[in-house]
Design a protein around this nucleic acid. Structure first.
Lengths: 182, 182
DNA sequence: ATAGTATGTTACCGATCGGTAACATCGGTA
DNA sequence: TACCGATGTTACCGATCGGTAACATACTAT
């Protein structure tokens, strides 16, 4: 769906259905034969992004089976890689979330549910990795991951990506030392 | 301006001028005698928020003169206190920023300029505090500060506030030890 | 060829929105 | 009293937007 670029660049509320259809190389009528409303269209776009992220989590678990620390590190690296391709406008999900205040909006629900799943996953990884205070570490990770795209708009995505990777590496390193010492 | 609550809760694009006037206990006509457009109205609202934050920075500098670490810690505590009053919808500034993709929108410019100032200030404090890698630490702080309201929507603002304070305290503590050892 | 399905086109509806004109009203001042 | 500036009221404009009806066209399968 190439119309996703429009959603990301102009915001889901700032782009009209006609423009979406044009970007998808079709027209409004055909669009409405596949999606029952613009809100559902937005939700479907969001579902695509979320599905892609879920697949990446699967990848992650497969590549670092039994290595939760490796998963956390790799996730930070993947995030940094995406940051580099982001430039200007931040996270598509977070922006859409901010644009849709209605708690019952289908797209917002999809985003919120994904965030909860992601945070739970991070928390589980922190527990498995034997972090001293898993809740604390998980919240720390999530704050960093969600703050990065926003902060990157200020100081540049490349730099923020590098520092994100660095800090996660340090956290993991500290945990290893702590674990071996304890 | 009580209409600010509307902007925050429903989003700047989701609230009409009529509703704004009603919330301000006046009418549309009078509103347009003071603001030349809705965009300027939004910008003015944002300027108010930014001005308030600037005053807090002044307070901070006055209360912890010559103590950059104390300033960073206090700022994290103030942020945590605000998080507790936030619940549900996140940062007003960040949401507005996400809602206004146009780089020339007056409100967006105000927000972006403030973010740059804030990051510069944090960077300066990190330098003054003698952090080993001030750029790195400043980016870390900013990621945490900007990620907190977002992450708080997932795990609760109270918890995220506490953990934000904790991690900043640890960073400062580590820096003190590093500095004394080095 | 023919029938059936998916897609394109045009025009339109109703609602909402930002913004304005014209006029009525009120409050203070001299 | 007479006046004047600020505010309220109503009605409206033009534009845009989400969504639909009706009809035309193209493609595919048998």
């Amino acid at each position: 769906m190439a119309a996703g670029d429009l959603f990301h660049k102009q915001g889901v509320r700032g782009v009209g259905v006609e423009a979406i259809a044009e970007a998808a190389q079709t027209n409004k009528m055909t669009l409405y034969r596949y999606f029952e409303s613009k809100d559902e269209l937005i939700a479907e776009w969001v579902r695509g992004i979320v599905a892609h992220k879920e697949e990446e989590w699967k990848d992650l678990a497969a590549k670092h089976r039994g290595d939760p620390e490796g998963q956390l590190q790799d996730w930070s690296r993947r995030t940094a890689a995406k940051l580099r391709l982001m430039e200007e406008r931040g996270s598509a999900l977070m922006n859409a979330f901010a644009e849709l205040p209605d708690p019952n909006h289908p797209a917002r629900r999809v985003i919120q549910e994904y965030r909860l799943r992601e945070h739970k996953r991070v928390l589980r990884l922190c527990k498995e990795a034997g972090f001293e205070d898993p809740k604390f570490s998980a919240n720390l990770f999530t704050m960093l991951l969600e703050g990065a795209p926003s902060c990157g708009q200020c100081v540049g995505m490349r730099q923020i990506g590098e520092h994100l990777v660095q800090v996660v590496d340090r956290m993991v390193e500290n945990n290893r030392q702590q674990r071996n010492a304890g």
